[in-house]
Design a protein around this nucleic acid. Structure first.
Length: 879
DNA sequence: CGATCCCGCCACATT
DNA sequence: AATGTGGCGGGATCG
């Protein structure tokens, strides 16, 4: 091995001197290679046995000097050789080469050469900034470490920061999934929002007196966020879930720090943050005690983070001169405004990427999880992922599942964040006193966390619907996308918070999952490829295949009509993608959004404004993503664009679109369709399980009729009195319940309805699913008449044994709930939780009780959320 | 001499 | 117990 390397490295430096030769030897010149064998040779060089193994060996064996050289040279070579053809920057290579050239000199690498920043650049160079959706790249820590010639520890530093920005997500032990910057803007946006909430509006960190400012800052924060501690803070730390379980470790302070650090930039007017201030702020948040040592350590960490962020082109180092003198500081040079997905070349691409995988993954994994309690187990830090991870690990031995989860998490994270933010905002508005510190950024990963939101979202909706509705609707619509709204929600993991919305989202999530699962099955069954692929690369399987399969399956099933398809987008993406430049990212502002956000001065403004801003923002950013993700394929880029455009106006249009799409949509929609009231169904919102193409389609074809079958109607504001209307079969059961609840608590009703709805939804879904084969929904052989029945099968499938009989579900909504809980856990643990809990603790039997409960609880839950959650968790876990 | 921050010990978590 | 993660801070370098 060594020899081999040496030859390369060797003083000869054939590379420089005799490029030609090298080319021959290595096969650099593919053109030239007349024979395949040559190639082989080349490759072997890169890795005779196992790429990793060699590298490792070399690295370990080699002296530091060697390493460096190797790194420089080899690092990149392998990359080149490897599939990742497109490493974005040739420049780097050049640079490298130069350095490489030096080799002989071997001067010891000087510290700089080993800097984390440089390492990070190398790391980033290995992956495309905007990977195609189809290709999911998995990152092996060991491999990367060996390739880059560093200890794994260093890779963690990088990855942790990247993870905080969602550029990567942990898939499994030692494995990370590369997402690229597709969602970077969204993440930043979320952080910005979160930052605003926490810190208040734009702050100047250093300029005047730092201290003063600092303090101020701190104070504000405190005020805003009373109990910062519980969560590791804001962001992503996932709020709830688990704080308890997850918290266990100090968890990824680095990640959290990173996010906070970024937040500071985003919130800062000047976009400049000095290290010391940042350190102080971060320390305060974390803990009151400020040791000097701590400070010092914090600063060190910040350097680490700053290096990575610098490599990402998000910040740059500057010096601020203050009274004392010049202090180190960093300036944000990344995007400031986040219109939405816009940043990237093609907004959708990202979504598409993440979406497919996400969706699928989410569904499956979660379901699986459902069985277990784990979901909650640890939400860990912001990454929803982690929490999920825990779950995964436990749950799935399979490689796939983990990935999926990751993906899901990722998606869900994003969504969750948005959701959380919204919730938060809303909550704040409503109950200023109460703060859910944690909630700020929910973890994207876990839908579980979402739970909190749910309660609010679910119930609250009613009142404000109208105005907000439009917004919410817009969001939902957008997010969902005409066809896929529900799905998107689900994906997010957020339960759907759309507080404003009249309808209940969360049920959908559950539904969603189910559907997805089904799809997966179908897809897989249909398409063996996924598995095949799996062999090749695990990641690929999880991410790519699923999405592809789904899409296709959907198409197939539904109707070929869906022209959209990945391909086109992909092409676009590719073209677009190439522009990696981080710096360039600057995003155009959207007029409406930015103003609000920024304009809001500080604390005061507030919630409303914030909310609005959020909505808007969310809409644009989130919605698109969601839509993309979900619909993924179905939506054409064009469509997406439309949306984006429409966003503003969506409110009105969306419903229509949905309808139209629904009707026509047959093809795409995977999950279900959500029809907004606006369209014409003023009062009702419908959730259709659109996902299964065939069945759905059939339904779609005859819209109204179809409705009766699968869809669930959620009461709009007007319907407030009404809990839910379910598919016919379902309805009857539900109806009884509602009565009691009706007037008593509208909110309650909703919640209830929500629960109930879930059931029906399932049913619908099921029905639909089944139909996939045969268009007629009723067709379902087993239990034609009742959708519920269908459900059961579905559930069974999705959940596995968990579910059991459909009949049960069908018959009693309440029962369902109970049943669901166990089963549900998997589905939408978080979102559902609140309701479930209630149900759980209480008696499932009496709806009324639950309702009352909920009423009261709504707030309480929030307040006590952490505690309750824990309780819940504990309770759950036992199960 | 202060700013940076590499390096790797070591604790905690997960297998 | 082994291995994965990642907090943490000593002390080397840089400027």
């Amino acid at each position: 091995e060594n020899i081999f390397d040496r030859s390369r490295m060797s003083p000869k430096t054939p590379i420089k001197n005799e490029p030609v030769d090298l080319s021959k030897q290595k096969g650099c010149t593919p053109e030239r290679n007349p024979i395949t064998p040559v190639k082989l040779v080349d490759r072997p060089q890169s890795d005779p046995w196992t790429p990793t193994a060699n590298l490792k060996m070399l690295v370990s064996a080699a002296s530091p000097d060697m390493r460096d050289r190797e790194k420089k040279k080899e690092l990149f070579r392998p990359i080149e050789n490897s599939e990742q053809s497109d490493t974005p920057d040739s420049l780097q290579y050049d640079t490298v080469d130069d350095s490489t050239v030096d080799e002989f000199e071997k001067q010891r690498p000087s510290r700089k050469q080993k800097s984390l920043g440089l390492l990070c650049q190398k790391f980033l160079a290995r992956y495309p900034s905007y990977p195609l959706s189809t290709e999911k790249t998995t990152i092996s820590l060991d491999e990367v470490a060996s390739i880059l010639g560093v200890e794994r520890r260093r890779i963690y530093d990088i990855v942790n920061v990247l993870e905080s920005l969602h550029l990567v997500s942990r898939v499994a032990k030692n494995q990370y999934c590369w997402h690229g910057r597709h969602n970077l803007n969204q993440t930043l946006k979320m952080l910005q929002e979160a930052g605003k909430l926490q810190y208040g509006e734009p702050v100047t960190f250093f300029q005047h007196k730092e201290q003063d400012l600092e303090y101020k800052f701190g104070e504000q924060k405190k005020e805003t966020i009373p109990d910062s501690q519980d969560g590791p803070l804001l962001d992503f730390s996932e709020p709830d879930c688990t704080s308890a379980s997850a918290n266990s470790r100090k968890d990824k302070s680095l990640r959290i720090m990173s996010q906070k650090f970024v937040m500071l930039f985003l919130v800062s007017k000047t976009k400049i943050v000095t290290l010391d201030i940042a350190a102080k702020i971060l320390i305060e948040e974390t803990q009151d005690t400020v040791d000097h040592s701590k400070f010092k350590t914090k600063v060190r960490r910040l350097y680490d983070i700053a290096n990575v962020l610098t490599s990402l082109g998000l910040i740059k180092k500057v010096h601020v001169t203050e009274e004392r003198g010049r202090k180190p500081a960093f300036k944000w040079i990344g995007p400031v405004e986040f219109p939405g997905k816009t940043d990237e070349p093609r907004g959708h691409s990202p979504t598409s990427d993440s979406l497919p995988g996400m969706q699928r993954g989410a569904c499956a994994p979660y379901q699986v999880c459902a069985t277990g309690k784990q979901k909650f187990t640890r939400h860990a830090s912001f990454n929803g992922a982690q929490p999920c991870e825990g779950t995964r690990r436990k749950v799935n031995s399979e490689p796939n599942s983990p990935r999926q989860e990751r993906q899901d998490e990722y998606c869900s994270k994003m969504i969750n964040l948005a959701t959380v933010c919204r919730q938060k905002i809303e909550e704040d508005t409503r109950n200023p006193s109460i703060t859910s510190p944690l909630s700020l950024l929910s973890v994207p990963g876990d839908s579980d966390f979402c739970v909190n939101p749910l309660p609010q979202a679910v119930f609250p909706v009613v009142q404000a619907d109208v105005p907000s509705l439009s917004l919410s609707n817009g969001i939902s619509n957008q997010a969902l996308h005409p066809s896929m709204p529900a799905a998107s929600k689900t994906e997010n993991g957020k339960p759907t918070l759309l507080p404003n919305q009249p309808f209940l989202c969360f049920p959908s999530s559950s539904l969603f999952m189910l559907c997805s699962s089904l799809q997966e099955n179908n897809s897989r069954g249909t398409q063996p490829t996924a598995e095949d692929v799996g062999n090749r690369s695990v990641e690929a399987q999880a991410a790519v295949p699923p999405s592809a399969s789904q899409k296709r399956s959907s198409r197939k099933c539904a109707s070929p009509s869906a022209p959209v398809d990945d391909e086109e987008p992909a092409a676009k993406k590719q073209t677009m993608e190439q522009s990696d430049v981080p710096l360039s990212l600057v995003v155009p502002k959207k007029p409406f959004e930015s103003p609000k956000a920024e304009s809001t001065p500080g604390s005061g403004c507030t919630s409303l404004e914030h909310l609005e801003a959020f909505h808007l923002d969310l809409t644009s950013p989130v919605a698109p993503e969601a839509a993309d993700k979900e619909s993924t394929r179905p939506l054409d880029s064009q469509e997406q664009e439309k949306w984006s455009q429409n966003k503003d106006h969506n409110e009105t249009s969306p419903g229509k679109e949905h309808n139209s799409k629904e009707n026509a949509s047959q093809p795409f929609l995977p999950q279900y369709l959500y029809v907004q009231p606006t369209a014409g169904l003023s009062s009702f919102n419908f959730l259709f399980s659109a996902n299964q193409a065939p069945g759905a389609i059939s339904l779609a074809a005859s819209p109204l009729p179809s409705l009766s079958v699968p869809c669930v109607m959620v009461p709009s504001a007007a319907l407030a009195s009404f809990p839910l209307v379910c598919s016919p079969a379902v309805t009857s059961p539900l109806s009884p319940v509602p009565d009691g609840s009706f007037s008593a608590a509208a909110s309650m009703n909703f919640s209830v309805s929500g629960l109930a709805s879930t059931t029906p939804v399932f049913i619908g879904t099921t029905a639909v699913v089944t139909p996939k084969v045969s268009p007629a929904p009723s067709v379902d052989p087993q239990q034609p008449a009742h959708p519920a029945l269908h459900l059961s099968p579905v559930l069974a499938r999705s959940c596995g044994a968990v579910k059991l009989d459909s009949p049960v579900c069908m018959g009693h909504p309440v029962t369902l709930l109970k049943l669901q809980q166990p089963s549900s856990a998997p589905l939408t643990p978080k979102s559902i939780r609140p309701a479930r809990h209630e149900a759980f603790f209480k008696t499932p039997g009496s709806l009324g009780d639950p309702v009352a409960w909920k009423k009261n609880e709504g707030n309480q839950i929030r307040n006590a959320s952490s505690v309750q959650r824990r309780l819940e968790i504990s309770s759950t876990s036992p199960d």
